[in-house]
Each structure stands twice: as C-alpha cells, then as structure tokens.
Amino acid sequence: MSPALQLENLSKSFGRTEIIRGLNLDIAAGERHAIIGPNGAGKSTLFNLITGRFAPSGGTVRLHGQSLRGLSPYQINRLGLSRSFQITNIFPRMSVFENVRCALLWSLGYKYSFWNMVSRSRALNEGADAILDQINLLARRDLPAGTLSYAEQRALEIGITIAGGADVIMLDEPTAGMSNTETDYIVGLIRKVTEGKTLMIVEHDMGVVFGLADRISVLVYGQIIASGPPAEVRANRRVQEAYLGAALEDM
C-alpha cells in the first residue's frame, strides 16, 4: 500500500532564497506525524506546498499515490486532505453552526447546487451538530464565530478541518498562543477527532509533540535531518546539536 502522503525531492524557492531543499518524506496511513524545527526552517511553507497554496519549484507531492501537481487547494481538499491554519481562519460573521455546516457541504455531495435547501437535509444538519458536540461547542451553536474566545475559535478551526471527513488531516500549530490548560484540552480534542486518520502536525510545544506523535521529523533549513519514533529522534546527536538540545533539557 502506498503511503498516505509522499514527498519526493520537494523544493521551493522564493526568488533566490531556497526555503525547501530537496525534501523526501513518507507518512504512512494512520500515522500521527509531527514536524518540528526552529523558526524559519520552512514548516509552514511545507504545509502550503502540500495543500496547494503554493506551487512547488520542483519535486512531487503524492496523496495515496496520486500526484497533486498543478491541483488547486479545493481540488486537493476533495481528494481527502484537509488542513487548519496557524492563524485562526474561520468565517467570523457566520454562526458557529454555519461554519461547520459549510465545511460539510462538499463532502456530502452538495457541490454548487441551488436547488437544495440546506435546512432540509438531515445528514447535513445532524452531521454539523455531531461535529459541534465532538468539539464541545454545541452551547455556542448560534453565536457568530467571531465572538468566540480564542481557544474556542481554535477548537472550531479543528472542527471545520475534520468536518469534511478527510482522511489526511494537517494541523498548523494548533496550540499556538494557548495557556497550559487550553493546550491540554486541545491535545485531547485532536487525539479524539483524528482517531483512525493520518495526522500531520506542526508544533512548537515539545510536550504536545512527544505526547501526540508516533513519528517525528526534524526540519532544518528546508531539509529533514532526522525522522523516526520520538525516542529515536530525541537521542539523535544531529538533532540535539541542531535544535533540540535546549528544548529537551527542559523536559
């Protein structure tokens, strides 16, 4: 079986600056894979390359063996890959419920139809409520999403990301800017809602990374210098030198 996500010799330059330099990585189906690395290593760029926000300068991204070359974000999403954003990215003027319901529309086959009423579909509305229940936002159901607290908006962001039923979920720093309690809460939530799916996560909080991930890849200057189970990565000399030394001593 081909890996869920396969990056082959991927590269990206902005002008003369090479951000991603010939990167290779396989992520198996069902794996929880964390990408860590110092600031400016290219983690967010890597996410944007995989999800079609940027076009790679070279190399290929494969989703379940299929090349994503030349596809737009919405086409990639339809193939079963969904992502969240580092900066909260929701529909602020729409209700919490509507946010989730919009995220369900395509996967339930509604496409651009103008002959269905969204209020009449049981699957759609119950599906949206079930997601809200999962992310514990049922009580906020009818509020404009923009009025939620920061942690609630992050939870909604995750809810929108998973709603469409994608089997590859990519989360970009889901706990950024959160207190310890909020972080614990979100980690529990991620664990719950990505059960049985392939997860790729970028995260700065080492507690989150080592608690959640099956495998960790360390990205430094656009290349992966180590990839493996947490214990192995932790013990890796190059990783310690390049990046982790200080962070790991705190643990």
Binding site: T51, S82, I90, F91, R93, Y112, W115, V118, I160
Partner: peptide, 23 residues
C-alpha cells in the same frame, strides 16, 4: 439558503478558507 448561497457567505467572509473546504 441553498448550498451555493451559503458558500457565497463563506467566500465573502474568508475566500481562502472556503478553498480548503473543497469549494
């Protein structure tokens, strides 16, 4: 109140996010 009408609101609020939802 149709799917495309609802997504019009979503695209108004945040076109980029809508693209990552398949639209």
């Amino acid at each position: 109140r149709t799917p495309v009408g609802r997504m019009a609101n979503a695209v108004r609020d945040n076109p980029e996010r809508a693209e990552f939802l398949g639209y």
